[in-house]
């Protein structure tokens, strides 16, 4: 959607045009649902966040100032709703298999199993994908939100920063920590899986 389209859309929404509301939902609901599902790992929670996002967006559309695009604005509302839900239910769990963290919070890898060139059939099997989903769910919310927006939804570093209200450098460092943690988890998983099939 171009800025001009956005401006026209905002004007219609602010005028209470029901068809415009429906169009906004049509164009964005799928992405919002996917984002919430990736963040929360539960279909029921994702649906709640989806509904909360649009209810809250419609309530505050009058105050929308075109500093960001409509879709970034919706993403931000959805991400905040998902994060709030996570904070409520997330016990700070620390996995035994996490990489070692040095005093200054740096992550030091300790798994060096080179799974990068395993056959696609091993890398893409359902069990591996289920493990990947569990690994995301075990990331702390602060890292998970950056990883989901940046690496799964494909937002740029700048868009991710804007959506989460973070600095660019915070996005970069959280992304790196998330990636390293996931790499560690997958290394352990693929090392075991390869041993078993041998």
């Amino acid at each position: 959607m171009t800025n001009a389209d956005d401006a026209e859309m905002v004007a219609r929404l602010q005028a209470g045009d029901q068809a415009a509301y429906a169009q906004l939902v049509d164009e964005n609901a799928g992405r919002i649902y996917r984002l919430a599902l990736r963040m929360l790992g539960s279909e029921a929670d994702a649906e709640d966040v989806l509904q909360e996002t649009f209810l809250s967006a419609f309530k505050s559309i009058e105050n929308f100032e075109a500093r960001s695009s409509l879709s970034t604005w919706l993403y931000r509302i959805a991400t905040n709703a998902a994060l709030m839900r996570l904070r409520r239910k997330e016990p700070q769990q620390v996995s035994v298999d996490e990489p070692i963290e040095s005093d200054d919070g740096e992550l030091i890898p300790r798994q060096f199993f080179d799974f990068c060139c395993l056959p696609e059939t091993d890398l893409l099997r359902d069990e591996a994908r289920a493990e990947m989903m569990r690994a995301i769910e075990e990331l702390p919310a602060t890292l998970r939100s950056v990883f989901v927006l940046r690496d799964i939804e494909g937002l740029s570093t700048e868009e991710t920063a804007e959506t989460l209200n973070l600095s660019i450098s915070a996005v970069k460092s959280r992304l790196m920590r998330a990636r390293l943690k996931l790499r560690e988890r997958l290394s352990i998983y693929f090392a075991h899986a390869t041993e078993e099939t041998r």
Partner: peptide
């Protein structure tokens, strides 16, 4: 190598589709 593969594998995860019932309820 494995960090790059990790990111690639996540990018290739199939996107979950929003079920029609969810959209209808919305």
């Amino acid at each position: 190598n494995t960090l790059s593969k990790t990111v690639l594998l996540y990018r290739r995860l199939p996107s979950p589709e929003m079920p029609d019932e969810v959209k209808e309820r919305l």
